[in-house]
Amino acid sequence: MTLPPRVTDRAFARLAEICELTGDNKALRVAVEGGGCSGFQYDIRLDDPSSDDLVLEKDGQKVLIDSVSLPFLQNAVIDFTEELIGARFVIENPNASSSCGCGTSFSM
């Protein structure tokens, strides 16, 4: 069964912190682009909504996924992790057949 991506509470909380720090209430855009070391790569950035976006919202925070990227992100989980190497938004994508060590590139 295909489901839209899910955003964890931790990711929404971090987005709220970023918006508070920057004073700019932008949404988090998660997109898939061609390229990277495995064929596709994630583009995660702050952005404004477009008319064709899927908007996932909680507590006033928004995560945007454009219609082209959506099929690549079915059933994925968008999370935020803090590790020794740094803190970042991560995508747990069951559609990816392989990914590379950087965590931003994958293949299907």
Rank of each mutant, 00 (worst) to 15 (best):
P71Q: 07
N93V: 01
E17H: 13
N75E: 10
K26S: 15
S38D: 11
N25Y: 10
P71H: 09
D43I: 09
Q74G: 11
I18S: 07
T104D: 12
I18A: 10
T104G: 09
L46A: 07
D52Y: 09
S38Q: 13
I78R: 04
G86F: 04
S99L: 04
T2F: 13
L54Q: 06
S99Y: 09
S38L: 09
E17P: 07
R45Y: 08
D47M: 08
S69N: 08
D52P: 05
D24Y: 13
V32E: 13
K58R: 15
F106V: 00
E17D: 14
G35I: 04
D53Q: 08
G103R: 00
I44C: 06
L28E: 12
A96W: 01
K58Q: 12
M1T: 08
S67R: 12
S50V: 05
V90H: 10
R88N: 13
V55Q: 08
A87F: 12
P49Q: 10
A27V: 02
G23Q: 05
D24H: 14
F80M: 05
R29S: 15
L21S: 13
I44A: 07
A13W: 09
P5E: 03
S38F: 07
G86V: 00
A31D: 10
I85F: 15
G86K: 04
S97P: 05
S98H: 13
T81P: 03
D24W: 11
D47I: 03
D79M: 04
S98K: 12
S105Q: 07
I85G: 13
S105Y: 07
V32G: 08
T2S: 11
S107M: 03
A87N: 14
A27R: 02
F89A: 04
V7H: 01
S38W: 09
V63D: 05
A76W: 14
I18H: 14
P94H: 02
L64T: 06
R29M: 11
S67D: 11
E33S: 12
G60K: 01
K62L: 05
V55K: 11
S98M: 12
G39L: 08
R6F: 05
P49K: 08
P49I: 02
V90T: 15
